[in-house]
């Protein structure tokens, strides 16, 4: 709770004299705006760096070829080398455009609160698509060391995916279930949907940047989610939900075990 109020306080100046409900509403709107901004920056960062990385592949192949040409055809090698250097310089320019990561400090985070926040923010979409949510938190959950905004983004991406999965036109059962459990020293979160499920052969591929099954989506959600989970010493997996559909399973080490400083 502390972190969320802190985030809100940082965003908003002192509110004018209004009713507590009004204040709460405004704070909430500000939080949403802030999160949206973060999300946009995240998407940009993720897609730029992934695209740059993909472009490096062919350049590396070129470098190998140049290396081999040096003996047989030095002139061609030199021309190619110049072109390669040019290409690398361009990529370097692009790399400088990547927005820097907001260095958010790590605190002790209660995942139940994070998930609750994600549901709060997603309420309009849930209502709009007629999705019912069953929220089954484990009441007493040990805290996780982590960056609250990143964790929020992680679960937001997974909940967004779940909503997408059940909101296909004509899809009947529109249910999303969130569960938190404790296993050994790990907090486990299951985000289940009653959608059509994810076929086996794309369950690993789905984490690649730009992988998407929906038009007008960039497909960076899962790849970002994976990265955040890994940074926190955890993992994400797509499996079957009990009633068909897809389960996104997240595991994060509790206490101080996780985050790499």
């Amino acid at each position: 709770m502390k972190t969320r109020t802190a985030a809100r306080a940082a965003i908003l100046p002192d509110p004018p004299q209004t009713s507590p409900q009004e204040q709460e509403k405004m704070r909430f709107a500000a939080l949403r705006a802030h999160l949206l901004e973060e999300e946009h920056a995240d998407v940009l960062r993720e897609s730029l760096s992934a695209a740059l990385f993909r472009l490096e592949g062919p350049l590396d192949a070129m470098a190998s070829t140049i290396e081999r040409l040096r003996h047989s055809d030095p002139a061609a090698a030199a021309t190619l080398a110049a072109a390669l250097a040019e290409g690398r310089a361009r990529l370097e320019e692009l790399r400088r455009l990547i927005p820097p990561c907001s260095r958010e400090g790590a605190t002790l985070v209660n995942l139940n609160e994070v998930l609750h926040g994600v549901l709060d923010v997603s309420t309009p979409r849930l209502l709009q698509n007629g999705v019912t949510v069953s929220w089954r938190p484990t009441a007493v959950l040990p805290a996780v060391t982590g960056r609250p905004l990143q964790l929020h983004a992680l679960f937001k991406a997974l909940v967004d995916n779940a909503i997408d999965a059940v909101s296909e036109r004509g899809w009947r059962t529109r249910e999303v279930g969130l569960t938190t459990t404790l296993a050994d020293d790990c907090v486990q979160v299951c985000i289940d949907d009653s959608g059509p499920g994810v076929p086996h052969d794309v369950r690993l591929k789905a984490f690649e940047p730009f992988f998407t099954t929906r038009p007008r989506r960039l497909g960076t959600g899962l790849s970002r989610a994976l990265e955040v989970a890994c940074e926190h010493g955890g993992a994400v997996e797509l499996t079957d939900a009990p009633g068909g559909g897809c389960r996104a399973f997240v595991e994060l080490p509790a206490g101080h075990g996780g985050l790499a400083s």
Partner: peptide, 28 residues
């Protein structure tokens, strides 16, 4: 998994930072 995170590899030099960045991207 705890033993083999990115933090199991030590190095702050520019060359290693570049390797970390590549690893982070290539993992996906």
């Amino acid at each position: 998994r705890h033993q083999h995170g990115f933090d199991s590899i030590v190095g702050r030099s520019a060359a290693m930072r570049r390797v970390f960045e590549q690893m982070r991207l290539v993992a996906k």
